[in-house]
Computed example of a mutant assay.
Amino acid sequence: PDAIYAYDPVLVGERGAVLLRPGKDVRLGEPDALVADLERAGVPVVGRIEAPGTVEGGDTLWLDRETLLVGHGYRTNAAGIGQLAAAFSDAEVIVFDLPHWNGEAEVMHLMSLISPLDDDLALVYPRLAPVRLLQLLHERGIETVEVPDEEFETMGANVLALGPRCVLALEGNDETRLRMEQAGVEVRTYRGDEISRKGDGGPTCLTRPLLRG
């Protein structure tokens, strides 16, 4: 059932796609299953993460065209990050240690903590975000909308940017939605009771963007 979360098995950059290697054993077949779809979409496969490396897409985020953020945690390890940096050698790869949270059995991805809303705006849960990540956003002139504590575990921080300041979010995180709207963001919602809440995968997890607008 995790295969519906298409964000994790592959990462797409300027030159093409790199097949990742999920840190969850039952997902190891997912990257190869996407190859035919990538080829039909005209996206060349330019690399692959090999054992013992592991990388999941949820631990990666393109901050801009030249900057790739990567979370080092239970699903993405040092060997995988090294291979990823080599595959995207023309990018600045910045790595952050992720919090233990509830342990290895409960995934904590980098994108559990941050979602881009625009080139200069991001949705963030600051209480668990790495200090260096918050500092980097400030240094790059990226303002933040903060997710309240009571809406973190209901995936308030997981929204999908459909365009600049236009996002898709799960229903029910009303305070997070209000804060985004106050920052000038158009928020569209969906129920997600089955495909999101039961698998802990928000709208970002359900997609794999191929082109950056």
Rank of each mutant, 00 (worst) to 15 (best):
Q135V: 02
E146S: 14
D149R: 14
V145R: 00
V145P: 15
V131M: 05
E150V: 10
L128T: 03
D174G: 14
L133S: 02
A129C: 05
R179Y: 14
E150N: 05
G141Y: 10
D149W: 14
L128I: 02
E151W: 02
E146W: 10
E139I: 09
Q182L: 14
C166Q: 05
L134E: 01
T154A: 13
E139H: 15
G163N: 06
E150M: 03
L136F: 08
R132P: 01
R165I: 05
E153V: 14
R165Q: 06
F152M: 12
C166T: 09
L178F: 11
P164D: 07
A161Y: 08
Q135S: 08
D174I: 13
N173V: 11
G172S: 06
N173C: 14
M180T: 00
V131D: 12
T154L: 09
L137V: 06
N173G: 10
V145H: 04
Q135W: 04
C166Y: 01
L168A: 05
R132A: 13
R140N: 02
P130H: 00
Q135M: 03
L133V: 05
T144R: 13
G141N: 07
N158M: 12
M180W: 10
L133E: 00
E175L: 13
L134T: 02
T154Q: 06
N158Y: 12
Q135A: 07
L170D: 05
L133C: 02
L170C: 06
F152N: 03
R140F: 05
L133D: 01
L134Y: 02
D149H: 15
E181R: 06
L170Q: 00
M155V: 09
L137W: 07
V145L: 06
M180A: 00
E139F: 13
A129R: 00
M180F: 03
A129L: 01
L136M: 06
I142Q: 04
E139P: 08
Q135E: 14
G163S: 13
A183D: 11
V159F: 11
D149K: 13
V167Q: 03
N158S: 12
E146P: 01
E146D: 15
G141F: 08
L168F: 10
D149Q: 15
M180Q: 04
E153S: 11
C166H: 11
E150S: 07
A157N: 12
E151G: 03
R132D: 05
T154M: 11
T154G: 09
H138Y: 09
E153T: 14
E143C: 06
L178P: 06
R132V: 01
E153N: 12
L160C: 07
D174K: 10
E146T: 13
L133G: 00
A169H: 04
G156T: 10
L170S: 04
A161D: 09
E171P: 10
H138V: 06
E181H: 01
L178R: 15
G141E: 09
T144M: 15
E151L: 00
Q182G: 07
